[in-house]
Structures are given as structure tokens and as C-alpha cells.
């Protein structure tokens, strides 16, 4: 009886052992020739791999968080940059820093000896060219002109039109402190009809003709009729700095 119990118990236990051994053998990955020489090697290697795995997971987590931060920052930066660039473009356009083109007129003023000579007014233009051209551009700005240049010098809020006399007495017209010479070509982008109307109303052509200056007004109605260059001179804050 005791022997029978022993045999059946042993049979059950050996069955379990057989099962466990099989599970263990089938669960283990095939070892390489140069690989695990003992159980301790396996344990050590598994432990090292686990530690390495944890370190790699930490690195991945850090990298992912960095990527998320960069993506968020890049997203905000792009929107901000676009908005700022748009603002800068608008401001630059309003300030006259960018060239513009559109329908407009050109006014060419130059000495014409063929015009009738008037003793009192002949040659007067050379003495008051800054005033005359200043009046013309003011009238244009007040009547539909959105951008004006004189001989390629863009007029902005800080622009100046000055007649500077030298020691010889001959005056030189300076626009934006840049000397310009005859023929003076005023290029204006804007409402052609209004600009022509004010010039007609003020008898600009006749007034200049009296001074033996030819004034040729040419309309350019096409969408890109005239081009006014951008302002290239120094900006107000280039040299002068605010005192704190």
C-alpha cells in the first residue's frame, strides 16, 4: 500500500517536473555558442539588459518630451513669425520702405528754351524749384497719390526737398539729402484723375511754362503703370537714440 502510494505520488511529481522542465526549455531562447555559459551569466546579462532597457526608456521619454516642447514652440513661433512678418510688411509698405507699382502719372519738368521768354519769370524755377516741386507733391499727396518719388527718391514722412546753394550761387535740389538734377521726374502712384485734376486746377503746367520749364504730365492707367522705388535712406532711429 505504501509502495503504491509512493509510486503514484512519484508519478504525479515526475509528471509535474517533466512539464516544468519542458516549459523551461521551450521558454528559453536558443543560446549561442559564445553566449551564456552558465545560469549566473544569464542572470547577469538579463539584469544588465533590464537596466539598459530602463535607461533607454528614460532617454526615449526625455527625447519625446523635448520633441513635444520643440513642436509646441515651433508651432507658436511660426504663427508669431507669420503675424510679425505680416505686420512688418504692412508697416514697411506704409512707411514707404518697399517699392510699389500701380496706375499713376509721371510729371517731367525740365528747362525748355523754346517756351516763351518772360523777363520777370524766366529762370525763376532754379531759385524756387524746391518750393514748386514741394507744392506739386503736396497737392498730389492731398489728391489721391499714395506713393511719390522724385528722380527715384521715394518721399516718406521724413523726406525733405531742399534747394541748397553753393558758394557759386547755383542751387542744387536735394531730395532726401540726395542731389537731383533736371529733368525732374515726379512719379506718383494713385488716383490718376484726381491727381490730374488738381494739377489742372492749380495751373501747374502753365505756371512752370512761364518759368520756361516744360511740364509733361503722362498718365499710366495700366495696373502696373508706374513703379515707385522704396525709400533707401537712413531711418529716423538709425543714428539718433532715445535718451532714457
Amino acid at each position: 500500500m505504501k509502495r503504491t502510494t509512493f509510486m503514484w505520488s512519484l508519478t504525479g511529481i515526475t509528471t509535474l517536473v517533466g512539464f516544468l522542465v519542458t516549459v523551461q526549455l521551450t521558454s528559453r531562447p536558443p543560446s549561442t555558442a559564445s553566449g551564456l555559459s552558465s545560469y549566473i551569466d544569464l542572470r547577469t546579462q538579463v539584469s544588465e539588459l533590464n537596466q539598459e532597457h530602463q535607461l533607454l526608456e528614460q532617454q526615449i521619454a526625455k527625447a519625446n518630451s523635448q520633441v513635444s516642447e520643440y513642436r509646441a514652440a515651433a508651432g507658436h513661433g511660426t504663427d508669431m513669425m507669420q503675424a510679425l512678418e505680416q505686420d512688418a510688411t504692412t508697416v514697411a509698405k506704409e512707411a514707404g520702405l518697399t517699392p510699389v507699382s500701380g496706375p499713376g502719372i509721371t510729371i517731367q519738368i525740365q528747362y525748355d528754351p523754346n517756351l516763351p521768354f518772360d523777363e520777370q519769370t524766366a529762370g525763376l524755377f532754379d531759385q524756387i524749384s524746391d518750393q514748386e516741386i514741394g507744392l506739386i507733391v503736396n497737392d498730389l499727396f492731398a489728391n489721391g497719390a499714395s506713393a511719390i518719388s522724385i528722380n527715384g527718391q521715394r518721399l516718406v514722412t521724413t523726406s525733405s526737398i531742399r534747394l541748397v546753394s553753393g558758394l557759386s550761387g547755383n542751387g542744387t535740389l536735394q531730395v532726401n539729402t540726395v542731389p537731383v538734377t533736371s529733368p525732374y521726374i515726379i512719379t506718383a502712384v494713385g488716383d490718376i484723375n484726381r491727381m490730374q485734376a488738381i494739377l489742372t486746377l492749380n495751373n501747374t503746367v502753365q505756371e512752370l511754362n512761364i518759368m520756361q520749364e516744360q511740364c509733361l504730365i503722362t498718365p499710366h492707367p495700366s495696373p502696373k503703370g508706374v513703379t515707385v522705388p522704396g525709400y533707401q535712406g537712413p531711418l529716423p532711429g538709425s543714428f539718433a537714440k532715445e535718451v532714457h
Binding site: T4, M7, W8, L10, T14, T15, G18, L20, T22
Partner: peptide, 16 residues
């Protein structure tokens, strides 16, 4: 009866 544990071992391996 001695073959029973051996048979059990074989059965266990087979089950595994």
C-alpha cells in the same frame, strides 16, 4: 510499477 514515474515524466514532457 517502476515504469509509472518514467511514464509520468514522459507524459509531463508531452503535455509541456
Amino acid at each position: 510499477m517502476i515504469w509509472l514515474p518514467v511514464l509520468g515524466l514522459v507524459v509531463g514532457v508531452a503535455i509541456g
